[in-house]
Nucleic acid binder design. Structure first.
Length: 593
DNA sequence: GTTAGGG
DNA sequence: CCCTAAC
């Protein structure tokens, strides 16, 4: 994550970088840096802050359930993070490190507009008391003392410890060697932290603290998070160093980072370990290896452990006359398989029954975690060829590639039902080979695969021939095919923040065309930006107007030049006025008529 | 398919 | 960025 420009709000203690929704981005790492020499205590406080921030930032994940902080070596290298729901406790999605004696700071994100408190009140309220940071917006709950640590300044702060410290409304930590304010270090934490702490604490405390909502209005927006959290226990454990020690011989160990080396006897590394197939013949185990053990400085991204039990043989539909011999059937099958494989196969993936289309997304972004049940993931074998071969020379069923039978995009479960209905009459006709047409996933363009209707037809000669479903090239088999309600929730698109130049283009287009003509804006300024829909542009304009109206301190993300924001306001005002005029005019006309 | 607005 | 209503 890029460090943003420094904004000096008068804090000389710590400046907390954004842990923003931007943390959705691939690496999810932030570097936190401290200006103070008293890095130990300071770092602990910062870690607490960071962890809380991680917790409350619902944009990271809807369900943070745990937080941790630890010290990796004496003194200056520490980390903080949180565990999110759906992850194993060994997974660390976010991590922050603290260094000392470096004075790079980054932009903070501010309290939400709905935050009732003024900046001044927070600033004064957040002056760090000797033993704790108090957050008056949630008085009585907000005490968040420094983490205790031993004489070496090294302590693993577990969730339990932390909880105790949270519950401690009266700071009692005598050995918390609070640094005096002498060096100008104000020990103030950023203003927004009051609200964050309030929220985070409420999150941890559960429904019993709903009363705080009135004082922390922003709680409402993330209500669901707190609810989920409150129902959970907090089985925090220090993350294991390595969790993949039981790899079997037949396992294939893959470290997607490709950094560590692996030897069979040294499971602390990781690499491709080509092993013989398991007795099943097609079993593949993808074992993720914690990379952190390879190098203390290496990325500690979460890793995903996948188990692929098997790839099912792609569905083939074969029709042969009853008089055909077994041998000819075998040969026919062989031909079909060979012709498919001849052009190669590639692997498709399904998560919760939903096809994963974007190869560039990370597992994290896609929501694949080690805790995914193996049945949540499906793999398909898909021909890479563009033209599915047919073995019937006079095949009358070969449809043009561009003549799919359109079907409204619908949840896969609906498709399956629909397929089942449509297939009902087909089953009786299904040939002895038992071919069927279930498990057709959505094709890449989002439309469902064509129905097998055409397979009912017969060749002019009345003979039956091997016919492959025209669009079976899209996906041949799914393993396993689990449908859940989650599958109906489509993949969320990858977040792609607007660049300044994009904003510039948007502003220019809206200045020209006005608001309310988003399709035209799209065509004019973003015609070649495939990933920007006119809805996106409309939404971006909405946020731009909002951004322009709030104070610069409250803005997040890549800063938009003030000049652009001014133009946004101007254009917005102008076009709003135009719209109002138009509406008044219309009203008058309608009244006259 | 577009637009507007809430979430 | 998603979802949905309304057109």
């Amino acid at each position: 994550m890029a460090l943003q420009k420094k904004l000096d709000y008068g804090f000389s203690g710590y400046e907390v970088p954004p842990i923003p929704r931007a943390a959705r981005s691939a690496r999810r790492r932030c570097i936190f840096q401290s200006k103070t020499d008293d890095h130990q205590l300071g770092a602990f406080d910062l870690l607490a802050t960071v962890a809380d921030k991680l917790l409350m930032e619902g944009g990271i994940s809807p369900k943070p359930v745990d937080m941790y902080s630890d010290v990796r070596s004496s003194g200056c290298r520490m980390s903080a993070g949180c565990r999110l729901d759906g992850e194993s406790e060994k997974q660390i999605k976010m991590e922050s490190k603290v260094y000392r004696n470096v004075s790079i700071s980054s932009r903070d994100d501010m309290c939400s507009p709905g935050c009732p408190e003024t900046w001044e009140s927070k600033q004064s309220a957040l002056v760090r008391s000797p033993n704790s940071i108090k957050f008056p917006s949630c008085r009585g709950h907000m005490s968040f003392g420094s983490f205790p640590f031993n004489s070496e300044g090294v302590k693993i702060v577990t969730r339990d410890n932390e909880e105790k410290s949270r519950r401690c409304t009266q700071p009692t930590n005598a050995n918390t060697a609070i640094r005096p304010l002498s060096d100008g270090g104000d020990w103030r934490i950023k203003k927004s932290l009051a609200s964050k702490h309030c929220k985070a604490t409420s999150n941890l405390k559960g429904e019993g603290y709903n009363a705080n909502k009135k004082r922390c209005s922003f709680l409402n927006t993330k209500n669901r998070y707190r609810r989920q959290i409150s129902q959970r226990d907090y089985p925090f454990k220090k993350r294991k160093l390595f969790y993949c020690c039981s790899a079997r011989n037949s396992d294939v160990l893959i470290n997607s980072d490709g950094i560590c080396s692996f030897s069979e006897n040294d499971s602390k590394g990781a690499a491709l370990l080509p092993g013989p197939a398991s007795p099943g013949g097609s079993s593949i185990l993808l074992h993720a290896v914690a990379p952190g053990e390879c190098s203390p400085f290496q990325s500690r991204n979460s890793h995903v452990k996948l188990k692929i039990k098997s790839f099912r043989v792609p569905d083939l539909f074969i029709e042969l006359p009853e008089t055909a011999t077994v041998g000819s059937l075998k040969r026919t099958v062989m031909k079909a398989v060979t012709s498919i494989l001849g052009d190669g196969l590639h692997v498709g993936m399904l998560l919760q029954g939903k096809k994963i289309k974007d190869d560039n997304r990370t597992l994290l972004q896609t929501g694949i975690s080690r805790d995914n049940k193996s049945d949540a993931l499906g793999f398909t074998l898909e021909p890479t060829t563009q033209t599915f071969p047919t073995h019937c020379p006079e095949d009358p069923f070969q449809l043009p590639r561009d003549s799919p039978q359109p079907r409204a995009r619908s949840p896969l479960i609906a498709n399956v039902v629909q397929d089942a209905v449509e297939q009902k009459s087909l089953d009786a006709l299904t040939d002895p080979a038992g071919g069927n047409f279930r498990n057709f996933p959505e094709s890449d363009d989002g439309s469902a695969l064509s129905t097998p209707d055409m397979l009912l037809e017969k060749t002019p000669t009345g003979s039956r021939a091997l016919v492959a479903a025209p669009k079976m090239r899209e996906a041949l088999a799914i393993v396993p095919m689990h449908i859940s309600k989650q599958s109906e929730s489509a993949q969320r698109r990858m977040r792609r923040p607007f660049t300044v130049s994009e904003v510039e283009a948007l502003v220019q287009a809206v200045e020209k065309l006005g608001t309310g003509r988003w399709r035209d804006v799209k065509l004019r300024a973003f015609d070649n930006a495939k990933h920007r829909t006119y809805v996106d542009l409309k939404d971006k304009w909405k946020t731009l107007v909002h951004t322009a109206r709030i104070s610069p301190e409250q803005r997040r993300g890549e800063p938009v030049p003030q000049e652009l924001l001014d133009r946004v306001l101007t254009a917005h005002a102008y076009w709003s006025e135009q719209q109002t005029k138009y509406q008044l005019k219309s009203q008058r006309e309608s009244c006259l008529v």
